[in-house]
Simulated scan of single mutants.
Amino acid sequence: MADDLDDIDALEAPFPDTPDAPMDRILECVAVRCESPDVKTFVLRDTARDAPRFAAGQSMLLTLDIDGERVDRTFSIASAPSTVAGDKALELTLKRQPAGRVTRWLHDELSPGMHVRSRYPLGVFRLDAMPQGPLALVSAGSGASPLMSMLRTLARHAPKQDVAWFHAARRVEDILFADEIATLQARMPKLQASVTLSLPGPGWFGLRGRVSRRLIAAAMPDFFTREVYCCGPTSFMDDVRRIHAADGARHARFHVEHFGAPTVSTSPADRAASDADTDTRFDVTLGDKHFTARAGETVLMAASRQQVVISCGCASGICGTCKLHKRSGAVEMHHQGGLSPHDEAKGFILACSSRPLSDLVLDF
């Protein structure tokens, strides 16, 4: 990737177009790069002539067949969207997780020439307009991937943008994109980069420790003035958000990416409402399955609790994998772009993002 940036000033061009609606696609693996002993970058090419456009920061759903079982997982796209006609390559930079069935399979099995099913672009965590002020890209672990897509996009189209890159990792060998960040710093005059390690080894003279207000202030004294894009574990993002808010920054300028089960509110008002509705139950019929949902529980939570299987890729309202058709009943639904307005109008819901307000009849 860094080789494409030798003449950064010559790459300035109009900012990439806004993304298309999610589409089901077949991708071919055309290359695999080893970034570290447990991190690989998979270069994928869309086999369709009309490959959809995506925005920096967005993600894709991969549908894999692992030991005869369909498995869906959502991953952030690390490459920058291209404005070059015919350029249909996408990159996923993935760490092999010892307990992660999908990342282990990808590292061990996915090789050039193989094809995988996908759905993209997904998600509302994206940089799809020229920034109007200074940015902070804050990540932990593999959360650096969508932010790298943003940084690569800025390097191509706005190399004079004021950007502060802050990354948290455990050890030196866990730092992602270190060489490329150094290369970009030489070409982007207003790019400042900081890394903190929670388990620094001998010879590390940079920041150390878990993310804190002190560390953020040392790395970015003007953090509260910056629009923030943050990705990492939920606890990490919550800590960074609190630090940003504590310094008087506006809440609307803080963007997060999150894959996983939605966070249940613990505000006093919500706890009181939940306690009052402890005995409330809604009957849910899904095809030939029947289960009950507690007040405040999503359809997916209720189904999982009662061993009713609903395919799910992200559990965050991004990927659209858990789309169901609502034949009757009412729900409260808050998703993150995983369902189009057209599908909503036709009565579809996302199980991960919908809380029953009455008895429901659903089908796949």
Rank of each mutant, 00 (worst) to 15 (best):
Arg117Phe: 11
Asp275Leu: 10
Ser111Cys: 12
Ser76Tyr: 03
Phe348Ile: 01
Ser59Tyr: 11
Pro121Asn: 02
Ala31Lys: 13
Pro146Ser: 08
Asp279Ala: 13
His335Val: 09
Ile310His: 01
Arg70Thr: 15
Cys29Asp: 03
Met1Gln: 05
Thr18Asn: 03
Ala55Arg: 04
Gly100Cys: 00
Thr234Val: 14
Asp275Met: 04
Ser235Glu: 15
Leu176Cys: 06
Ala272Arg: 10
Pro16Val: 04
Asp17Lys: 11
Gly123Ile: 06
Gln97Lys: 11
Ala249Thr: 11
Leu215Val: 13
Arg208Phe: 00
Pro268Glu: 11
Ser212Arg: 05
Arg49Met: 11
Asp38Asn: 13
His251Met: 07
Ala158Lys: 09
Phe125Tyr: 02
Gly248Ile: 10
Asp3Glu: 14
Leu350Met: 11
Ser118Trp: 05
Arg117His: 14
Lys95Glu: 14
Glu109Thr: 15
Leu64Met: 10
Asp343Cys: 02
Val124Thr: 10
Ala219Asp: 01
Phe15Asp: 01
Asp4Ile: 08
Val32Thr: 14
Leu90Val: 15
Asp247Leu: 00
Leu176Tyr: 08
Arg73Cys: 13
Trp105Ser: 08
Thr183Trp: 05
Phe75Gly: 06
Pro146Cys: 10
Glu180Ala: 06
Asp72Asn: 15
Cys29Trp: 01
Arg53Phe: 08
Leu151His: 04
Ala345Leu: 00
Glu332Cys: 00
Arg187Thr: 09
Ala55Val: 10
Arg170Trp: 05
Ala219Gln: 01
Glu344Val: 06
Gly143Pro: 09
Ala272Ser: 06
Asp38Gln: 12
Lys289Ala: 14
Gly68His: 10
Glu69His: 13
Gly209Tyr: 05
Asp128Asn: 15
Cys352Asp: 09
Thr196Asn: 11
Ala13Leu: 03
Pro146Trp: 05
Thr280Cys: 13
Phe42Asp: 07
Tyr229Cys: 07
Asp179Arg: 10
Ser353Ile: 12
Arg117Tyr: 09
Phe15Tyr: 09
Ser274Asn: 10
Ala302Arg: 07
Leu5Met: 14
Val163Pro: 12
Asp279Val: 05
Thr225Gln: 13
Glu227Cys: 02
Ser311Pro: 15
Ala144Val: 12
Phe282Trp: 15
Glu180Pro: 05
Arg49Leu: 13
Arg208Met: 11
Asp50Asn: 15
Leu339Phe: 07
Pro81Ala: 04
Met60Gly: 15
Ala330Trp: 00
Ser79Asn: 11
Pro16Cys: 08
Arg117Trp: 08
Phe75Arg: 04
Arg294Ser: 14
Ala219Arg: 00
Ala169Gln: 03
Arg45Lys: 15
Arg241Met: 14
Asp359Tyr: 01
Arg305Val: 01
His342Trp: 02
